[in-house]
């Protein structure tokens, strides 16, 4: 029976875990259920719902965040493995009231239609431009190849990344 495959009731499995991590440059001290993913930590413990989810299995890229500066899928990172680490989400992209150039270019270029995959794309693009400020169209497509979008057909996203890269290179 299916029931037997879902472990229930072992008290040692219901323990909470304590974590200290930095989220968008703020130190957080949390006590959470041990089974939670980084995605669940962000959305449910910190109410940072800008990070989305489309499958929770690593198949869509909607939940991408930067973990210690690297693009990862928060649905496949156990929260318990984030102790002592640093996370950046879409909520941490702006500088005060000023949008990051990627954010303003996405908004202007039609790169966000329904907007659901947008946070993941923004963080993937940010990671790319920090590594390759003058990324080519092919490099942009490759760097964003872990993010699915069903609305745009990607081309306006590519253009937004190119426009933001130009702004960032111009030092604005």
């Amino acid at each position: 029976m299916a029931t037997d495959l879902i472990p229930l009731g072992d008290p040692s499995l219901r323990q909470k875990v304590r974590l200290e991590l930095v989220v968008n440059e703020e130190r957080r001290d949390l006590v959470i259920d041990g089974y939670k993913s980084l995605l669940e930590l962000l959305r449910e413990e910190l109410q940072l719902t800008g990070t989305k989810h489309g499958c929770e299995l690593g198949e869509c890229g909607a939940c991408a965040v930067l973990l210690d500066g690297q693009l990862v899928l928060s649905c496949l990172v156990a929260a318990v493995e984030c102790d002592g680490r640093s996370v950046q989400t879409v909520e941490g992209m702006q500088n005060g009231p000023t949008l990051h150039p990627l954010q303003s270019c996405f908004a202007d270029a039609g790169a966000a239609q329904c907007g659901y995959c947008t946070p993941g794309f923004l963080l993937a693009a940010k990671e790319l431009l920090e590594r390759k400020p003058d990324a080519t169209r092919a490099e942009i497509a490759e760097a964003l190849s872990g993010q699915l979008c069903r609305c745009t057909g990607y081309l306006q996203i590519f253009e937004a990344v190119e426009a933001a890269a130009a702004q960032l290179r111009g030092g604005r």
């Binding site: 800008g50 954010q103 908004a107 907007g115």
Partner: peptide, 21 residues
């Protein structure tokens, strides 16, 4: 022109159904 909901969508402020609690 930038779409009216463009800014909210790039800042993560747009509240989709599962973002509500």
């Amino acid at each position: 022109l930038r779409r009216v909901d463009g800014r909210a969508k790039v800042t993560g402020q747009t509240r989709f159904a599962d973002d509500l609690s």
